[in-house]
Design a protein around this nucleic acid. Structure first.
Length: 571
RNA sequence: GCUCCCGUGGUGUAGUCCGGCCAAUCAUUCCGGCCUUUCGAGCCGGCCACUCGGGUUCGAAUCCCGACGGGAGCACCA
């Protein structure tokens, strides 16, 4: 390699660096770039350092205007600092082949889906799509005490709302016979044993790494015990993996694989009483259903070893396990454990309370599924635990809604305004400031209006403000009623533009959600009810429409037996 | 207690596997300006970060060791 070429490159980067940093190039930074440029050519870094050093010295001597001019000639592409595009697509999957990726979303049908579920479901679904693969919806209903019939459908509805489609759907509980067979196989291989110890003893043994006597029982005896378990002649026994009771990973200390639960199953009634645990069912189902890249949250990481051990013993294919951090949003609890008592005590209205991060709650307050998807994808699949502010979701939602939401007037805390010499008008006002295709409404005005009290407080007698989209008004008297006079239609740049209603208004309440939890404590003031008057056209809106009340915020409309109300999404 | 995982601005994230085109990405928040018949949106600008200490190297956000901090698991829940 000719040193001439190196010199040229060094000059180029020195100029760029200098231009970028007020005319002074930094030799180290320049050398880095030069080295990177000649990476494959086996040049000693020392040599490059020298060349870059002198290049910088020379470049730093000339004034910045000249630097720019020279760079312009030499390498104009380096002049503009190109903006690096950041795409929000998911990173490549390891060992993934187009058309052969299979993912799965395995919820337990025991409640409404929340934003955390949405993250898992969206990631799974998007990966399947990205690789032209298959996405499976699997109900992990292996605990009859938890599974409830209604939630199979509820969760599917929630997924559909997110516009997630699945290629295949099944229940783990439909595969119990297969699980029994595998368990039997495992016992025969001396990979599992029936344990009669009480749960406290098992817990204690696992904690201290002590084996129990059940472990030493013969295979034949174990098989008999297992059959007894299934045929319901024994109580209080479990099937355990013969792991390693001394293993530092406590998950490997003979975890329970099957246990007896006599509660009837919502789908199978009392047909079965022996049920696989998550460790067994999860691993077996992932493998058998052909899943290539199962995702789960990282609190399962220690169970990976158990997952693979089981599959190895059973001689089943091992999928590529992936783990990511749980999604948590500041001030919004996701766990059922936390939400349930709030509902029971009436502190929130239900699973669709607008303060909750359930999909139903988010929907109710006007967050679009597309916003949730973009939000989830922007979070990525790292293992860093973090607590996100909801304003991130709001910002995304706002960008989507703003161009399509119709604008209306809603007057919070209204005060009456009487305008002298008011011309009676029939004014056509458009429903969106830029997109005229969204249409308009016609408002008939006389001399009576209602405007927000807080705005009036800020204005003095003699002050002029504009009834937005209508005309100017000059304040004459401020009392329980504001008296003003008509002050022309011409637009005054710096005057306040204030939303209004005529006396043909509708009363309505808007519910504004706040943080349910603040510093870990329940916030009793987390829901605010704002009363006010809305313009008459609002009464014709339908449930589910998301509009912007000008100078107030985006609101989702809901009608419940003749009363109309709003749920505040965000500013 | 033991083990594992994680540590990039106020917040979230990219980059870490495979050291140099990283004086560190893109958002969001906050602050300022422009624009606007909304306190919204848009546009422009600003603030602000590789947890710390050692090591390896010509060169470390990236590799190694240690400390510190946070989280998780040690269920017959998933």
């Amino acid at each position: 390699m000719s040193s001439e070429k190196i010199q040229k490159t060094a000059r180029k980067y020195a100029l760029q660096n200098a231009v970028q940093f007020n005319g002074t190039a930094n030799p180290k930074a320049v050398a880095g770039k030069v080295i990177a440029a000649f990476k494959d050519e086996n040049i000693s870094p020392n040599e490059i350092y020298q060349i870059s050093g002198s290049a910088c010295l020379e470049v730093n001597k000339i004034p910045i205007e000249q630097q720019i001019a020279e760079l312009e000639k030499l390498a104009p592409e380096l002049l503009k600092k190109e903006k690096k595009e950041r795409d929000f697509s998911l990173p490549e999957l390891p060992d993934a082949e187009k058309g052969k990726v299979v993912t799965r979303f395995p919820p337990e049908p025991n409640g409404y889906l929340h934003i955390g579920h949405a993250k898992a479901a969206i990631v799974d679904y998007e990966y399947a799509k990205m690789y032209d693969g298959k996405f499976i919806l699997r109900f992990d209903d292996t605990n009859p005490e938890n599974a409830q019939l209604e939630f199979y459908d509820v969760q599917k509805e929630d997924l559909r709302w997110l516009s997630i489609e699945w290629d295949e759907e099944y229940n783990t509980s439909d595969h119990l016979e297969k699980h029994y067979k595998l368990a039997e196989q495992l016992i025969k291989q001396e990979g599992a044993y029936v344990c009669k110890c009480p749960s406290d003893a098992i817990k204690d043994g696992r904690f201290h790494g002590k084996e129990c006597d059940c472990r030493a029982v013969s295979t034949e005896k174990n098989l008999d015990l297992w059959k007894d378990m299934i045929s319901s002649s024994v109580e209080g026994v479990v099937l355990r993996l013969k792991g390693d009771m001394k293993c530092v990973n406590t998950a490997m200390r003979d975890p329970t694989l099957f246990r007896i639960i006599d509660t009837p199953h919502p789908l199978h009634g009392d047909k079965y009483r022996v049920w696989p645990t998550y460790d067994f069912a999860g691993a077996v189902e992932d493998s058998l259903s052909g899943v290539t890249h199962p995702f789960r949250t990282k609190e399962y990481e220690l169970r990976d070893e158990c997952y693979f051990r089981l599959l190895e013993l059973l001689e089943l294919r091992k999928p590529h396990l992936m783990e990511f951090a749980r999604l948590s949003i500041e001030g919004m609890p996701v766990s059922k454990r936390k939400i349930k008592p709030l509902i029971d005590k009436g502190m929130v209205s239900g699973y669709d309370d607008i303060r909750l991060p359930t999909l139903r709650g988010l929907e109710k307050r006007g967050i679009l599924p597309e916003a949730i998807k973009q939000f989830v994808l922007s979070q990525g699949i790292s293992k860093v635990e973090s607590s996100v502010t909801f304003s991130l979701v709001e910002a995304i939602n706002r960008k989507i809604i703003d161009p399509i939401a119709k604008r209306y007037f809603f007057v919070q805390d209204p005060i009456k305004l009487v305008v002298e010499n008011a011309p009676a008008m029939k004014k056509t006002i458009s429903l969106h400031p830029t997109d005229k295709k969204l249409g308009s409404r016609i408002i008939k005005t006389d001399n009576i209006f209602f405007v927000p009290k807080t705005d009036m407080k800020k204005l003095n007698i003699g002050g002029i403000f504009r009834l937005k989209d209508l005309y100017n008004v000059k304040i004459k008297e401020k009392n329980k009623v504001i008296f003003a006079e008509y002050a022309g239609e011409e637009l005054i740049q710096d005057s306040a533009k204030i939303q209004w209603t005529t006396d043909n208004f509708i009363k309505m309440s808007v519910f504004v959600p706040g943080l349910l939890y603040q510093k870990g404590n329940y916030n009793p003031n987390s829901l605010e009810k704002v009363e006010g008057f809305a313009e008459e056209a609002v009464s014709r809106l339908k449930t589910g429409e998301i509009v912007q009340f000008e100078r107030f915020g985006f609101v989702r409309i809901e009608k419940q037996n003749n009363t109309i109300m709003g749920f505040f999404a965000h500013k």
